[in-house]
C-alpha cells in the first residue's frame, strides 16, 4: 500500500504519549521492619513467612512493610475459625473467631509475606489498608460481604458479590448452605 492513510496521519498529530520507564525491580530497598516493634511474631508456615500482628498495630505494620519495598497487596481475605477453635497458633497470639489474611508482594525482592490479624467475634472491626493500597478496595468489600468484618476507614463498604438485600454473611461457618431438594419422581402428567 502506498502513501499514508488519513488515519495514520491523524494518529501522528495527536498528543504524544510519554513512555513509561521500564520497571525491572532493581532498585535500592531499605531493610525489612522489625516485627517486634509492632508486637508481631514472625513464623514459618509451609515454608512461607507469616507475621502475626495484633489488631492495634496492623495498619502501622503494613505501612512499614510498604515502605520497606512491598509495593503490592496481592490478596486480602478472611477466614472464619468458628469450627476450628483449637487451631495451631504461635504462643502469645490469642485466637479470635475471624482472621484477616493479607498477602503482600515485593517486586524488588521477588518475595511474599503474609500478615494475619485476629479479629474477635464481638466487634469484628479492623483498620482498612485502602489508604496504603488502593487495590484492596474490592478485596475488603468482599471480606465484608462474605464475613461481615468491618474495615474502618474504607470509603464504600457495601456488598460486592451478594445482592444488597441479602441477609447474613455466607462464608461464615454458621451460615448453612442452602439446598434445593432434588425430586426423583416422574414428572406429573399434562392433565
Amino acid at each position: 500500500m502506498e502513501g499514508e492513510l488519513p488515519g495514520a496521519a491523524a494518529a501522528a498529530s495527536g498528543p504524544a504519549l510519554e513512555p513509561f520507564p521500564l520497571v525491572t525491580g532493581e532498585t535500592e530497598i531499605g531493610p525489612e521492619p522489625d516485627p517486634a516493634a509492632f508486637g508481631a511474631l514472625l513464623q514459618q508456615s509451609s515454608g512461607q513467612r507469616v507475621l502475626h500482628v495484633p489488631r492495634e498495630s496492623y495498619f502501622s505494620l503494613v505501612a512499614a512493610l510498604k515502605n520497606a519495598g512491598y509495593e503490592m497487596c496481592a490478596d486480602l481475605c478472611a477466614v472464619d475459625y468458628l469450627a476450628s477453635p483449637n487451631r495451631r497458633l504461635p504462643e502469645g497470639v490469642s485466637p479470635g473467631r475471624f482472621e484477616v489474611v493479607v498477602n503482600l508482594l515485593s517486586l524488588c525482592r521477588a518475595a511474599r509475606i503474609r500478615v494475619r490479624v485476629q479479629v474477635g467475634e464481638s466487634d469484628p472491626v479492623v483498620d482498612s489498608i485502602f489508604p496504603l493500597y488502593s487495590g484492596t478496595e474490592a478485596m475488603e468489600r468482599e471480606a465484608f460481604d462474605l464475613f461481615g468484618i468491618h474495615f474502618r476507614g474504607h470509603p464504600d463498604l457495601t456488598r460486592i458479590l451478594m445482592p444488597e438485600d441479602w441477609e447474613g454473611h455466607p462464608l461464615r461457618k454458621d451460615f448453612g448452605i442452602g439446598r434445593v431438594p432434588v425430586r426423583f419422581k416422574e414428572a406429573p402428567g399434562r392433565r
Binding site: 467475634e121 489508604p131 461481615g148 470509603p155 463498604l157 438485600d165
Partner: peptide, 26 residues
C-alpha cells in the same frame, strides 16, 4: 454480628455530593 451502618448499602454509583471523598477520587 451485623454492622448496621453498612450492611444494606447501595452498590450503585451515587451522586457526587452523596459520595465520600476517597470514593469519589477512586
Amino acid at each position: 454480628g451485623f454492622v448496621p451502618g453498612t450492611s444494606e448499602g447501595a452498590q450503585e454509583m451515587s451522586l457526587r455530593r452523596a459520595t465520600v471523598k476517597e470514593e469519589l477520587e477512586r
